[in-house]
Design a binder for these strands. Structure first.
Lengths: 196, 196
DNA sequence: TTTGTGGTTTTACAAGTGTCTAAATTTTGA
DNA sequence: TCAAAATTTAGACACTTGTAAAACCACAAA
């Protein structure tokens, strides 16, 4: 990404970024990410190749910008100041909501891209980074033997595991059920005996 | 992968596979995976390009064969029949041991490849698949609201999170400390209040 | 209006990718 | 041991990638 989407961007730049990300979103719903070429993206939004490379390093760069855009309408910052337990569920709910909003898009994407392939991995990874940062903040005053960074990664991982299960592996369960899974995973002591 | 490494392979095939995977391991310790080209791999082990494509679809295919090879000297199958709690730690120990064996290689790889980049992700992912399968088996007679497949993924994820922290993020703590992290993560009820 | 400046676009290029065909070579089995 | 079958290799092809130099344009200041 050669432009910082946080900064003020002039109208032209915004239009170009939007055009490319929409082209990408469109194509992602139609075919496998690996098969998408830069030429194709440019053809779809009618910009020359050089313009693409003016804004992005490569298609991976563009797709990560797409995730950034998609994630923008989630309001996660609020959760940052809550204690961990509340923060965790607040963030879970909010991302559940976000993914619900984009339910159709996600379904189309999954139709053409393997759930454990590069693209979906990258998608999950993007939210993982955001959430890890968040949880790390709300864990600051916890005292554990385990390093905070590792705990933050653990919580983020687990939240995303459930969300992936619901939205990407398409088990499409309700928010309540999903919450149930999450809390059972996090609270069930692993040393429990097999109850046979 | 056009040949199944599980099947019997004639001497020639084995030699070729070995040559290519060694070339890959060598190059991975020298430069970034993205910069490695098929030509380079062929040059290093002195096989023509056509032979490479005879055995592998692309370099991603080769590298995943490399992970398979690397994982072969871990004896995980035994853990499959144990109850979950013992299985979990047995598998953890065994993979800890495996990664220790390849400590130098991993360090060299991490020097040239970002920890959250495509290559390392793929590496983790490979073991994630293997372990998820394993845990799914040892969870068969557990009764939980949460689907077994999801629980298996959760355990596998968490084990690998710690191992990644130790060996790929290079915090290099002892087996005991690492075990401590893992058990704290898995047993700590997430609803614990902030202890400030 | 002219000129300069910054960004966009054109065009060209040196690489790499993956596929294909036909020739060379090895393996196999009679 | 020899010929048929299978595999490996060379070479070529169409295509993509990312970069770089030069032409081009719009818009502001003089």
């Amino acid at each position: 990404m050669k432009y910082d989407p946080q900064k003020k961007l002039n109208r032209n730049t915004q239009r170009t970024l939007k055009a490319f990300s929409e082209a990408m979103f469109g194509l992602l719903g139609e075919k496998n990410f690996e098969k998408i070429t830069v030429n194709e993206l440019c053809a779809r939004c009618d910009y020359p190749r050089a313009t693409f490379y003016n804004y992005f390093d490569d298609k991976y760069d563009l797709v990560s910008y797409c995730w950034y855009q998609l994630g923008k309408d989630a309001h996660l910052d609020a959760a940052q100041t809550l204690p961990t337990n509340e923060s965790l569920l607040a963030v879970f709910d909010e991302v559940y909501r976000l993914f619900t909003t984009h339910h159709d898009l996600l379904n189309r994407v999954v139709e053409h891209n393997p759930v454990d392939g590069l693209l979906i991995n990258d998608f999950i990874h993007h939210f993982n980074r955001v959430m890890t940062q968040l949880f790390a903040n709300s864990l600051l005053n916890h005292k554990t033997k385990t390093p905070i960074e590792l705990m933050a990664q653990y919580y983020s991982n687990t939240v995303l595991l459930v969300l992936k299960w619901v939205f990407l592996s398409q088990h499409d369960v309700s928010l309540d059920t999903a919450r149930g899974y999450l809390t059972e995973l996090l609270t069930k002591p692993f040393l429990s005996e097999a109850n046979n």
